[in-house]
Amino acid sequence: MNAIEVRNLGKVYPGFELRNVKFTLPEGAILGLVGENGAGKSTLIRLIMGASAPSSGEARVLGADARSPEFTKIKDDIGVVLDEAHFPTSLNARQIGRVMADTYSRWDAGAYGEYLKRLELPEKKPVKDFSRGMRMKLALAAALSHDAKLLVLDEPTGGLDPMVRDEILDILEDFTRREDRSVLISSHIVSDLEKLCDYVAFLHKGELLLCQEKDRILEDYAMARVTEAEFESLPEEAVRGVRRGKYGVEALVERRLVNSAVTLERPSLEDVIVFFARGNRE
């Protein structure tokens, strides 16, 4: 079964349009949703979680249509972490635990307590006195303490220092050790996703430019660092993005379409994303 199936999903706002997004997240996999600020990542997550109505298309999550009434029950199997914790600010971690215990049918107070200890979160301090990192860790503890089958995370590591980011990524890796658990995580920090994800989807200005297995992306594409004359000899259809500098041309190319005589380098995921976003505009 697929954890998430998104078919031709669209949403129109004044001045912004999410267009015809299609992708699938297989059960047990981690999909990283990459895109610059304002690319539409949060809009897409709201649509997938049924929090917003699509202008077109549909999203199915754990087998249910996100717009259907039964999806409210399905959300019992989904853990959510948004870009800010969004908890009532005068409540403390213990009180939030009690609210969540009444929210989720399989809430595990023991697991929640363990996460609070592991993440060094005080139980009696109000959330308003937490740092951003502490709030995100609290949101993660709440999302992981009810035996969720799917985690949906919207920019969980944005604005955090590298130590906290690393801690959060470690916890997510632990979560996915069980094969039936899936994760959809959005971020504009590509290095975080490179560490964690099986699949990468790249959203740019409301359009999904790329959605593939991460390893496949790194195999299929390559960086060509060449002179202007060599660049001109590359087949036009092979070039996915280009940057011209003083000392030559850097181009992201589709490996299979380029003559083997050209020296190609393995790209980083960040190279692929950046060059896809640049396109052939120069």
Binding site: R46, M49, G50, A51, P69, T72, K73, K75, D76, I78, V80, L82, E84, A85, H86, F87, P88, T89, T103, Y104, V152
Partner: peptide, 18 residues
Amino acid sequence: SLDETSKWEVLALMLPYS
């Protein structure tokens, strides 16, 4: 007002509440 200010509403729509 408190729910709106803390953005609880945004989170609540993603939790198992109708």
